[in-house]
Design a protein around this nucleic acid. Structure first.
Ligand code: MN
Ligand code: MN
Ligand code: MN
Ligand code: MN
Lengths: 220, 220
DNA sequence: TATATTTGTTAGGTAAGTCTAACTTTTATA
DNA sequence: TATAAAAGTTAGACTTACCTAACAAATATA
């Protein structure tokens, strides 16, 4: 049985492993920052997780989830994303509101609940941010990871997911009338600062920053 | 901000106040037993709750919730019963399974979630056990509290709630095809041991014990 | 009313999870 | 490669929630 806190550490390590695309290892400071605790606290927890065979790591070395640790992390992530979907689809939460509440709901212990919820939602493959929801068996639906910033002038992409899930970004997208499924055409690339002029389906044309274009996943 | 544990203590005190019909006061041992902790632990917590002005009590005296404590307890109870209703109505949980999971869900912090859930469920007045769900303003729908054991021979009652919510009792009721809304006619009262012969709607006649008849609320 | 029983409190201890301050190791850079 | 910076660890402390054992007060009963 894992504690609420241990679950958070495992999920954090899993997400860092997705983020660090080259190698799935994480560092203590990185992990601590992700969880909003001090590095000293992360070190303490690491010892405990190692003791329980959920991570492999040695002093001053990198952290890697074991199979068991990964399995547990995936379970939490599955719950997190199913709950986000529930809040968004059934209770009319906006996509910048779901995360905070799902952060709590993901820790509810009841295998039956998770699977019934999945069924109730119609076995969704992606959450409101376009992130893949792990299946009951641990598999992750895959999706194209093309960034809007990778498109060339003239190309069109349909938004599949957001890379940045911060409230600030999500609310800005809402203002721009962009959501999962919206088509965006790149009109022009500005070499000077990497910004682009885009045409948004059902919304006025816009100029957006490089940072913006690097935060949206699209399908060509 | 109340901790998970403090919330459990307040809900326990509230429910004991409903139970002790004569006076709403509770004792340390009673409280500890209800929460599954040792009396010494309950005493510790009591001091903290008193410090926070959630209960009034003095050493060796009885425990009483303050208005603030009661308000908080009612909020938890509202969430508990709404979640039970959700699990029962939307996710096909049986009425003996809902309690355990609601025990966890009641602690999720999000006023918006509670109210949206209430709306999603159609503002239910009673939970799957027939217990009243406190309204957002703290009011409790009232209901008739006649026990099956109070009926006389020949009278018919419609089941409105269960007094005992133990798995053992709920599963027995299920076996007998009795649920909220079922009509039961008292055929005969046996003076010797207080048992009664009853006629259950859509099920064979039965003899049930005094204990059984004292655990079911009905409406004449 | 004296004594036994029940009820409630205190003292002292543990475990989880967090922190700060000081220290060590690793890595980057001059 | 020596040194500075960054990354990570350790020691010691705090808070919350729990426990056991010993004690004190209140209540029931002979
Ligand atoms: Mn969490
Ligand atoms: Mn998400
Ligand atoms: Mn609870
Ligand atoms: Mn109930």
């Amino acid at each position: 049985m894992l504690s609420y806190t241990e679950e958070n550490y495992l999920k954090a390590l899993l997400m860092l492993s997705f983020q660090n695309e080259t190698r799935p290892e994480a560092g203590t400071n990185e992990m601590a920052a992700h969880l909003g605790v001090k590095p000293a606290t992360a070190t303490d927890m690491l010892k405990k997780l190692k003791e329980k065979n959920l991570v492999t790591y040695q002093k001053y070395g990198k952290i890697l989830l074991t199979e068991e640790g990964k399995k547990n992390g995936i379970t939490i992530l599955r719950k997190h994303r199913l709950w986000e979907t529930f809040l968004y689809e059934k209770l009319d939460f906006s996509w910048d509101e779901v995360h905070e509440v799902a952060e709590q709901l993901e820790h509810i212990q009841s295998p039956k609940l998770v699977n019934k919820l999945d069924e109730f939602l119609g076995f969704p493959e992606f959450d409101p941010h376009g992130d893949p929801i792990p299946k009951a068996n641990g598999e992750m639906p895959s999706f194209e990871k093309t960034l809007l910033s990778e498109l060339t002038a003239g190309e069109t992409g349909k938004v599949t997911a957001v890379k940045d899930t911060s409230t600030l970004f999500l609310q800005y997208l809402e203002k721009l009338n962009i959501t999962i499924g919206t088509n965006i055409k790149v009109l022009e690339l500005i070499d000077f600062d990497g910004s682009l002029n885009i045409q948004i389906e059902n919304a006025p044309n816009r100029s957006v920053s490089m940072k913006f274009a690097g935060s949206l996943y699209v399908k060509r």
